[in-house]
Design a protein around this nucleic acid. Structure first.
Length: 563
RNA sequence: CGGGAUGUAGCUCAGUCUGGUAGAGCGUCUGCUUUGGGAGCAGAAUGUCGUCAGUUCGAAUCUGGCUAUCCCGACCA
């Protein structure tokens, strides 16, 4: 491919709205073109990378028995009502009407469609298991797209769905998918951090997310360096070490003038935040829910939502709290009425705590929840952090950030039951298929590879997904240089290499800068001086310097490089 | 959906406070010179100053609505 005939552009300067490395370089290299918030066109050079990632994923899906399909993106509201998600999902699902005034949706995922196709075919246990997958555009009406391709509204996703006769069969297949995912990410040069993740309000049993460990990630991960426990902070468990000091001390009211909040109260009373209890209030359908966690930790909203089986947590307003006999800023369940009280596991056996006295400017010391609280439920409510201990081995946990590259999820029979994707078992009885689903965002993976592998000049693509395998740069406009570069391009192309020839009449510096933005693993420089010795330059994108190589050795060297 | 910021040439931005002929650098086009990490000289083209309304003799500049984009948060089966 000659660059003079290619459709491309490069930007000399960083676009003003890009902050992440992947966003900057994908824009500057002309891989993508924004059309609207979170909606991008893929230009030829970006499309080539996408196709290569897609092919790697396709190979690995086929290896674990996948059958490729293509499901519609425009679907009926009726279908989504069958699963219950038409009403369960909020504005993220884009709804519209067609010309016949039918309610339609743009698919944000394809469980409904694949279950619909499966129930059409499936009748007997003898047909199970099977796995269907596709590469398909999803539309999610994100409240806030960000970071270039990291979080977008319209995106290409590989989504796969497996169907099984038994839970045990799903369990075994889930492990195969897990291994396939590891192979996929390693093939694009990423060693993922795999964490346990939330299964969401739609249910499901077990889920893992494959993460790129990076400071620019938007998810928080909780890791144990000692035993390998890894989980998304949303659901991470941890070992409680209840604060105890003096279980016998009697409740004592102390003045804490204008001291609201854990920081102010604990420093005023000279106790550690851990020796206090944080009291947080939510309004759940008009009823007050009072939640207590140790003062040094936060309430995990995901855990709480899953416990309360609600999609939205609304902070309670002051009147509701006061109506239950509590004083915001100085609150505790002591003496409270008309409220459900949930306390974290760490508080059940704690004692000698500082809690609110439900009176302005006063707190209690020496609170012993077992003795002083009534009608409470003990639950896992606090969010894990680097202040917590590993649930398995008790080591201190560590925190990091990650970009979610893909997830695997044991769906169970959620969709097969509601949508009647059933089969007859050997006893002739009808059973719903047991399902798993497995997703990877292709564009996000492309961006993540850049996050994972770049220098100050541009992306450094791994061989497996670089837009081209080799870039030839002609240096100088002497006839023999142009001719030699041209000949080399034809020769390598005929041998099956993917070659980009920069044949522009530009100064070398311009060509080198652009080459860095395209990140092609091998750059061959053809110049007058080298040709006099029958040599060209061989430079790897990943290395700083080049070496002179005999022209007639290039083919062999390339073959070895790409073996 | 809350908070903040920004919309001026293809790109990066000045000009706005204090109203008075639309600017720079880079890019593009032409010519010459140059040729190893985004060259130099000369010339040229390029704008409803996001949009609508208001104030004013006069608005890129002041006021209000709308809209688009980015950042932080909420949200993310």
């Amino acid at each position: 491919m000659k660059l003079s005939r290619y459709f491309y552009t490069t930007l000399r300067e960083t676009p003003s709205d890009a902050t992440m490395a992947s966003h900057i370089f994908l824009m500057r290299g002309g891989y993508i073109k924004p059309l609207s918030t979170g909606i991008y066109s893929m230009l030829p050079i970006g499309h080539r990378v996408m196709k290569k990632i897609e092919n790697i994923i396709r190979e690995e899906m086929n290896r674990v028995g996948g059958l490729e399909v293509d499901l519609p993106i425009v679907q009926t509201a009726e279908l989504w009502s069958e699963s219950g998600r038409y009403s369960a999902i909020g504005d993220e699902l884009l709804r519209f009407k067609d010309r016949n005034n039918h309610n339609m949706v743009l698919a944000m995922t394809h469980e409904e469609a694949v279950t619909d196709a499966s129930r059409y075919v499936l009748s007997s246990y003898k047909q199970l298991p099977f796995m269907l997958y596709q590469f398909k555009t999803k539309y999610r009406d994100e409240a806030r797209a960000r970071g270039g391709l990291i979080r977008v509204r319209e995106f290409l996703m590989k989504d796969a769905y497996s169907f099984h006769a038994t839970q045990a069969d799903l369990d075994a297949y889930y492990e195969e998918q897990y291994q396939a995912y590891l192979r996929i990410f390693r093939r694009v040069g990423i060693e993922p951090v795999v964490v346990q993740s939330d299964t969401g309000i739609m249910g499901g049993k077990l889920a893992h997310e494959f993460m790129l460990d990076t400071p620019s990630g938007e998810d928080y991960l909780i890791l144990c360096k000692k035993c390998g426990y890894q989980a998304n902070r949303e659901i991470a468990k941890f070992q409680r070490h209840p604060y105890t000091n003096n279980a016998e001390a009697a409740l004592e009211k102390v003045a804490t003038p204008n001291k609201e909040g854990i920081e102010e109260v604990s420093s005023f009373l000279q106790v550690s935040p851990e020796a206090t209890a944080k009291c947080v209030f939510f309004d759940i359908e008009g009823k007050l829910v009072t939640v207590l966690v140790p003062g040094h930790l936060e309430v995990s909203e995901i855990k709480l939502r899953n416990i309360l089986k609600t999609k939205e947590l609304i902070p309670a307003d002051e009147s509701l709290i006061k109506a239950s006999g509590m004083e915001p800023g100085f609150a505790s369940p002591i003496g409270a009425k008309n409220t459900r009280v949930l306390i974290d596991l760490a508080l059940e056996n704690a004692n000698d705590l500082v809690v609110g006295a439900n009176e302005k400017d006063f707190h209690f010391k020496h609170c012993n929840p077992k003795r002083d609280f009534s009608n409470y439920e003990v639950l896992d409510l606090a969010e894990a952090s680097a202040l917590c201990h590993c649930p398995n081995c008790d080591e201190m946990l560590t925190e990091t950030r990650g970009i979610e590259l893909g997830n695997i999820f044991k769906l169970g029979t959620k969709f097969s039951e509601s949508m009647k994707a059933t089969f007859l078992n050997p006893e002739g009885q009808s059973e719903p298929a047991v399902m798993g689903c497995y997703g990877i965002g292709v564009g996000r993976l492309m961006a993540s590879v850049v996050e994972n592998s770049h220098d100050e000049f541009g992306p450094i693509w791994p061989k497996s997904i670089a837009p081209f395998q080799v870039e030839i740069v002609s240096i100088g406009k002497e006839a023999n240089v142009i001719e030699a570069a041209d000949k080399l391009e034809k020769e390598l192309t005929s041998l099956g290499f993917e070659v980009l020839l920069d044949d522009r009449e530009e100064r070398p510096g311009v060509k080198f800068k652009d080459a860095d933005l395209w990140g092609i693993p091998v750059r061959i420089g053809v110049g007058k001086k080298g040709l006099e010795q029958g040599q060209v330059e061989w430079k790897l994108r990943s290395e700083k310097n080049f070496e002179m190589v005999d022209l007639d050795q290039i083919t062999e060297k390339l073959r070895l490089f790409y073996n």
